[in-house]
Amino acid sequence: MSKIEIDKKVRREIIKWTHYYFHKKEMNQWTKSNTVNEIVKIIKKEIKENVD
């Protein structure tokens, strides 16, 4: 896989969203797979909007 430059700002956003979904999982008793899907969606969104 060709290495790409990681944009730290985008990564920070993904991390922030991950925290948000961890919190959501805790509050709403989500399953792990549910949480993973939400994180995947937000990663795609962040990268589409800010890296692509």
Binding site: M1, K3, I4, I6, V10, R11, I14, I15, T18, V40, I43, K44, I47, K48, V51, D52
Partner: peptide, 27 residues
């Protein structure tokens, strides 16, 4: 995982997914 990456089609959609995977790996 490396083989799956290599066997994936060289198209725009895959390139995007691979980018997402790289971000995920960096985390």
């Amino acid at each position: 995982n490396e083989k799956i990456t290599k066997s994936s089609e060289a198209n725009e959609e895959n390139a995007f997914i691979l980018k997402c995977i790289e971000y995920s790996n960096s985390i």
